[in-house]
């Protein structure tokens, strides 16, 4: 098989497997997997910036929350129906990520991390500050009646699973297409050696800008979908923790791999799910995993797989 056929078989196979799983999974894991697919879409968005472009952002919760609140506030206060609300959320993510990119991309390395962290924190505090509309930490519930898309009830478990799968498949396809496109290859080149790419005549700033907007928009789409499918928007989704999570998932799964974000999210979700049954201090697990990963497996699970067995993995 050629590399291209292998790639299509592997990723298509995963989507078919996810499609088939819904008929056999018990209700609890069925719901979990829908959640994981939405969160994995968020991680895929994060991975485009972190894994492929080499920019470590500590502020992606800003984009996730922009999507969630763009959608949620649209439904709650402007009376939008689901489709325009989703678009509003995605558009909010695109605008916010473009604005942050224009500022943050003037910095590099550690300064970039801190700038994104600070702006995301300002975003989180802004959500709290306008508590009158956002209901702050408490958040607001999006009623079942407000979650009807073209007559389909998105609060129904099966419909929800399908919607999550469609979102995940779209994000997977976008990222796969992007990294095989010359534009994506230039991003990887920027990650590996920025100076050399600049010398070859590429416009580094524009490439990074587009990468950050794509990354932010995918994150916002995931945020909007999360709010819609699970019927809740709250300030905790804008907090630092939700900027750390995608970093954790992508590092665990493997930065700069297409499947890494999904594998990482799946592992971490169940790890936290199991440990939160044992203790309320479940974030301890996240901390330990982060430290162990940076120490022993900076490539992540899929990254190690690529290094050892499947060299053709995108």
């Amino acid at each position: 098989m050629s590399a291209k056929a292998k790639i299509i078989a592997l990723h298509g196979g995963l989507l078919v497997l996810l499609f088939a799983l819904q008929f056999v999974l018990p209700a609890y894991h069925h719901g979990n997997l829908a959640r994981i697919m939405v969160l994995a879409s968020y991680a895929i968005g994060y991975n485009i910036l972190f894994g492929y472009t080499g920019l470590l952002s500590l502020g992606h919760a800003l984009f996730f929350a922009a999507g969630m609140y763009g959608m949620g506030l649209g439904i709650q206060h402007l009376g939008l129906s689901v489709a325009p609300a989703l678009l509003a959320g995605i558009a909010a993510g695109a605008v916010v990520s473009a604005a942050l990119a224009l500022l943050a991309l003037r910095t590099v390395g550690v300064a970039f991390m801190i700038v994104t962290l600070m702006f995301a924190q300002a975003g989180y505090l802004t959500v709290l500050y306008f508590g009158e509309y956002t209901r702050g930490d408490e958040g607001f519930v999006i009623q079942q009646a407000q979650r009807m898309l073209w007559g389909i009830d998105l609060s129904d478990a099966t419909n929800r699973y399908f919607a999550a799968l469609i979102l995940f498949a779209t994000c997977l396809a976008v990222s796969l297409w992007l990294v095989r496109h010359p534009f994506g290859k230039t991003l990887v080149a920027i990650r590996e050696n920025e100076e050399r790419v600049r010398m070859l005549g590429y416009d580094i700033f524009v490439h990074k800008l587009v990468a950050m907007i794509v990354s932010g928009t995918l994150s916002a789409a995931a945020g909007a979908a999360y709010g819609l499918l699970f019927g809740y928007a709250g300030a905790s989704f804008a907090s630092v923790q939700y900027s750390i999570f995608p970093l954790l998932w992508v590092l665990l799964g493997g930065a700069g791999t297409i499947l890494g974000p999904f594998i990482g999210t799946l592992f971490m979700f169940y790890l936290i799910d199991l440990s939160s049954g044992l203790t309320s201090a479940y974030m301890l697990i996240a901390g330990v995993v982060l430290v162990l990963l940076t120490l022993f497996a900076p490539q992540g699970l899929v990254g190690e797989l690529r290094n050892r067995i499947w060299r053709w993995l995108p």
Partner: peptide, 22 residues
Amino acid sequence: DPERTIVATIGLLYIIQQLTLM
């Protein structure tokens, strides 16, 4: 390494904080 140490100290943050909680 500047970037990897940031990630590691984020991990350390959660470890210390959650152990204190426990």
